[in-house]
């Protein structure tokens, strides 16, 4: 398990941090952009530290969601890493790095709109009259 590339670790931990499945995250088409943004905005040693901690949480949890969440709260929301972690989550949810919108596409792929059962204003429009009804819900298996 520890043979993961940093990008794989990034994706896996993002699943636990965002509450979205791997395919949900991949479906935004933003993985490469976000991974690169994350790495480029940090000092190299911080990147290394962060992924070391992430891998440790993932490797020592025996795939228990509960244990991973505990690790996240303790380590990734710990005072040293909390700002990186919240930036990472914010990136998936809004397409922003800090106050800056990463790209036009990142804005339209923000997961916060999905969480709100809405859509990013100005993109992914739901069609004439859709707002008169509750949002569409398609049952999952």
């Amino acid at each position: 398990m520890s043979k993961k590339t940093p990008k794989e670790s990034f994706l896996t931990i993002s699943v636990y941090l965002t509450g979205y499945s791997q395919v949900d995250l991949l479906g935004t088409g933003m993985l490469d952009t976000y991974y690169n943004t994350f790495v480029e905005n940090l000092e190299i040693e911080n990147v290394t530290t962060y992924f070391k901690e992430v891998d440790q949480i993932l490797d020592n949890s025996g795939n228990s969601e509960e244990k991973i969440n505990e690790g996240i709260t303790k380590v990734l929301f710990g005072s040293a890493l909390v700002s990186l972690t919240t930036n990472l989550i914010t990136m998936w949810y809004t397409g922003n790095w800090g106050q800056d919108v990463i790209s036009p596409e990142s804005y339209t792929q923000g997961l916060i709109w999905n969480a709100a059962q809405a859509h990013p204003p100005g993109a992914k429009q739901p069609g004439y009259g859709s707002w008169a009804d509750e949002p569409i819900e398609i049952p999952t298996i």
């Binding site: 479906g27 069609g127 004439y128 009259g129 569409i136």
Partner: peptide
């Protein structure tokens, strides 16, 4: 009229698949 919203939803779901 209600089908319109489904049409759009179909598109966004297709796009998610195409990005995966």
């Amino acid at each position: 009229l209600k089908g319109v919203a489904l049409m759009y939803d179909l598109k966004y779901k297709a796009l998610e698949l195409m990005k995966t």
